[in-house]
C-alpha cells in the first residue's frame, strides 16, 4: 500500500499541474495579505476565493488524474496487489497533493505575516473541501468509461453546490417567509459541503450578527461545542460517503 502510494505520488508530483496550483494559491494569498492588515478581513477574502476555486480545481484535477493514470492503474491490477489498495493509493495521492498545495500556498504567507485561529480554520475547511470534491470526482470517474463525460459530471457537481444550491435555498426561504425556517435552513446547510464550510468560517469570524435572526440561531448552534462536533462530523460524512461508494464501484469495475 505504501509502495503504491509512493509511486502514485511520484507520478503526480511530476505533472506540472501541482506546482502551478501551489503557485496560484501562493499568489492569491500574498495579494490578499497585502490589501489588509486586519486578520479577519484577510480570512474573509481568502474564504470567498477559496470556496469557489478549491472545489473546482479539486473536482477537475481528481477526474483528469484518474483518467490520465489509467495506465498505471491497469498495470498495477495485474500485479499481486489488492484492488482496494490501488484505489486508495490513487485517491490519497490526489488529496495529499491538493492539500499540500493549499498548505504551502496559504501557509507560507501565514508564516510571514502571522496567522490566528480563523486562518487556520480556513485552511482546515480548504483541505476538507478538497477531499469532498476529490472523492465526488472519483465517484464520477469510476462510474463512466468516458473522460469527457466524467469531467462534465464533476463540473456539474461543482456548479450545483457552488451556484445553483444557494439559489434554490434562497428561493425556498423567500417563498416560505411566513413560516419559521431556522431548523430547515440549518438542515439545508448540512446538505451542501460548501455552505457548511462557509457557515463554520463565518461563525469563527463572529460576524453572524450581520445575518439577522437566522444568523443568531446559527451562532447558537455552531458556537457551542456540540455544534462544532456535529458540523465537522457531517463534513467528514461528505468526504467518506462518496469515497466509499467509488471504492465499491472500483472493486467491481472492468479494466
Amino acid at each position: 500500500m505504501l509502495k503504491l502510494l509512493k509511486y502514485a505520488l511520484y507520478d503526480i508530483i511530476q505533472s506540472r499541474f501541482a506546482i502551478l496550483y501551489t503557485l496560484f494559491m501562493l499568489l492569491v494569498a500574498i495579494a490578499v495579505y497585502q490589501v489588509s492588515e486586519d486578520m479577519s478581513k484577510v480570512s474573509l477574502s481568502l474564504l470567498n476565493i477559496m470556496l469557489m476555486i478549491v472545489p473546482l480545481i479539486s473536482a477537475i484535477f481528481a477526474t483528469t488524474h484518474f483518467f490520465n493514470n489509467l495506465e498505471f492503474t491497469e498495470l498495477m491490477l495485474a500485479q499481486p496487489v489488492k484492488r482496494s489498495h490501488v484505489f486508495l493509493s490513487q485517491i490519497i495521492a490526489v488529496v495529499v497533493v491538493l492539500s499540500l498545495a493549499l498548505i504551502l500556498g496559504f501557509g507560507v504567507p501565514m508564516l510571514i505575516w502571522g496567522s490566528d485561529m480563523t486562518v487556520l480554520t480556513l485552511l482546515g475547511i480548504g483541505i476538507s473541501l478538497s477531499i469532498v470534491f476529490a472523492s465526488m470526482a472519483f465517484l464520477a470517474s469510476v462510474s463512466t468509461r468516458d473522460k469527457a463525460k466524467a469531467i462534465g459530471i464533476s463540473l456539474s457537481i461543482w456548479i450545483y453546490f457552488s451556484l445553483i444550491y444557494d439559489g434554490l435555498v434562497l428561493y425556498m426561504i423567500y417563498s416560505f417567509a411566513d413560516y419559521p425556517l431556522e431548523k430547515v435552513t440549518l438542515a439545508l446547510t448540512f446538505l451542501n459541503p460548501v455552505d457548511l464550510g462557509r457557515i463554520i468560517m463565518l461563525m469563527q469570524l463572529d460576524i453572524s450578527a450581520l445575518m439577522g435572526y437566522t444568523g443568531a440561531f446559527f451562532a447558537d448552534f455552531f458556537g457551542n461545542i456540540k455544534g462544532i462536533v456535529i458540523s465537522s462530523g457531517i463534513l467528514i460524512l461528505w468526504m467518506a460517503i462518496p469515497a466509499y461508494f467509488s471504492m465499491r464501484r472500483f472493486a467491481k469495475k472492468d479494466f
Binding site: D11, Q14, N69, E71, E74, L75, A78, P80, K82
Partner: peptide, 21 residues
C-alpha cells in the same frame, strides 16, 4: 486473494505504461 498474481507473467496485447517515468 490477490497473491496468485505473483505466479503469473502477463504480456498484454497493447502495453500501456505510465507516461512520465
Amino acid at each position: 486473494s490477490e497473491s496468485y498474481r505473483s505466479l503469473i507473467g502477463y504480456m498484454p496485447q497493447i502495453g500501456r505504461y505510465p507516461e512520465n517515468i
